[in-house]
Amino acid sequence: MNIAVCVKQIPDPATPYELDAENHWVIRPNDQVLDDTDRVGVEVGLQLAEATEGTVTLFSMSPSGSLQGIRQALAMGADKAVLIDDESLKGSDALTTARILSAAVKREGYDLVITGTESTDGFTGVVPQMMSEILDVPCLSFARNVEAGDGTVTIERQTTTGYETVTSALPAVLAVTAGAEEPRYPTFKGIMQAKSKPVDTTTAAELGVDPVSSQTITAVDPVAARAAGDVVEDDGEAYLKIVELLEQVKVI
């Protein structure tokens, strides 16, 4: 099976992201990391590829920078990567992102496209659905327990009240939840091999996509923080403070 996995390189989430003053776009440092959410997509892709003697190709739209995030995904075992690095795509919204990724995936060919449910820095959570519409395939979202074979894929789709089992024909887009699989750690061998795996770079023009701006950020304002209250060290009797507060707010 020919598996496309969309992965994002993002600024280290441990630090709050900075916005540029002019357009309020996220400032992207040279060293970006692989979005944790997308490690799960890579893991699911690798497992399906292993089961079907398939290949895993990564797709990512971002400034290349040091390629740190992409190498992290290659080190897990993906075969190659296609990177869309284009100054004109700076500040792209979800729809442009989906158009670009869909065009790239289509050009390379695919049976299954895997994404995360929601990126850590963008968290619009609609890129996979948009891709499925553009590619005209089903979208298996909020997926865990993925099984594929014989031209079909079956998942458990999380719902508000539980989950449903969904079966779809291939090709399809699959958006996996963070808990779908435990991502593997790259081995030393994997890290060494990642350095020489092919990374192709392409542009919006080569993919025939015209980046359009469809939304602007008109204001950025600080939000008044919720004030912190008392913090007490437990001396064996701190539970009494909790009882006292519960009484005060009339819960007991």
Partner: peptide, 23 residues
């Protein structure tokens, strides 16, 4: 923000060529 809400919003947006503003 329900799961089906987000699925339909994303597909609809791509169909209409319109952006989605989330959250």
């Amino acid at each position: 923000m329900g799961n089906t809400d987000r699925d339909v919003a994303g597909r609809l947006a791509a169909r209409l060529g319109q952006p989605v503003v989330a959250n």
